[in-house]
C-alpha cells in the first residue's frame, strides 16, 4: 500500500483571486450541467468581518468534494455507486446510482448535485457528440480521476491562475502538498465530524500578520 498514492488538494486562500477559472475549467472538463447552475466546484465570494469598515475583508473560498477518508456519502449509498479507489478518490458510478440522494443528505460539505434526465437532454444539445453522460445520477467532483490516471493534474488545479489549488500525494514525503499538510499549515474543514477530508486550506487570516 505504501506505493499507492493518496491524493489530496491544498487550497491557499492567500492567492485565490476569485477568478472562477476553476469553475469554468471543471464544468467544461467534466460536462457539468451549467445551464442549471450545477457545478462540481464553487468559489464563494464572501464578505467577512462585517461589523466595521476596519475589519471588512473579501475572501474567496473555493470548495469541492473532500474525498473523505471516511465518507458518509459512501456508507449511506445503497447501490454501491459511491465508492472509493485505493488512491483515496471517491467516485460515483452513474451506471449504478439510482439517485436516491441519501449521499447528498449525508455529505457534510454540500458537494453533490443531481444530474436529471432533463440535464441529459440539455447536455446532448450543449456538448453535442462528445456528451458522455448517459444516465441520470448524483454527481460530484471526481478529483478528475480520468486526468489523474493519465498523469495530469485536475483541470481546476491545472488552470488555477493564483496557484491557489495544489494537488499532490500525501504518501509521498517529498510532495509539496504532503509537506503543507504535515506541517499543519494546511487544515481540513470540519475535521471534528470524523470524515477525514483530503482537501486542506491555508488560511488567509492567520498567515497575514
Amino acid at each position: 500500500m505504501a506505493n499507492t498514492p493518496h491524493y489530496a488538494m491544498v487550497i491557499d486562500l492567500n492567492t485565490c483571486v476569485g477568478c472562477n477559472a476553476c469553475m469554468a475549467a471543471c464544468a467544461l472538463e467534466n460536462q457539468t450541467p451549467v445551464w442549471d447552475n450545477k457545478w462540481r466546484t464553487y468559489v464563494h465570494d464572501m464578505e467577512i468581518g462585517t461589523s466595521t469598515d476596519d475589519d471588512v475583508r473579501r475572501r474567496f473560498f473555493p470548495r469541492l468534494c473532500n474525498h473523505c477518508d471516511n465518507p458518509p456519502c459512501m456508507s449511506v449509498c445503497p447501490t454501491g455507486a459511491t465508492h472509493k479507489l485505493d488512491n483515496g478518490i471517491v467516485l460515483v458510478d452513474d451506471e449504478l446510482c439510482m439517485g436516491c440522494r441519501a449521499c447528498v443528505m449525508a455529505c457534510p460539505y454540500d458537494a453533490r448535485y443531481d444530474v436529471t434526465s432533463d440535464d441529459l437532454e440539455q447536455g446532448d444539445k450543449f456538448f453535442g457528440e462528445l456528451h458522455y453522460r448517459t444516465r441520470p445520477s448524483v454527481d460530484k467532483c471526481s478529483f478528475c480521476a480520468h486526468r489523474v490516471m493519465r498523469g495530469l493534474k485536475p483541470a481546476c488545479v491545472e488552470t488555477c491562475v493564483g496557484s491557489a489549488r495544489m494537488f499532490g500525494d500525501l504518501n509521498d514525503p517529498n510532495d509539496e502538498v504532503a509537506k503543507l499538510v504535515k506541517t499543519g499549515v494546511a487544515k481540513p474543514l470540519m475535521a471534528h465530524l470524523g470524515t477525514g477530508p483530503n482537501v486542506f486550506y491555508i488560511s488567509d487570516i492567520e498567515r497575514t500578520t
Binding site: 467516485l91 458510478d93 451506471e95 453522460r133 471526481s142 480521476a145 490516471m149
Partner: peptide, 18 residues
C-alpha cells in the same frame, strides 16, 4: 445490463469521458 452480476462494481465513469 444492470442485472449483470458484476455491475455492482462497474465504476465506469472516468473511462466514459475518454
Amino acid at each position: 445490463s444492470l442485472l449483470k452480476a458484476n455491475t455492482l462494481f462497474s465504476k465506469q465513469q472516468p473511462e466514459k469521458l475518454l
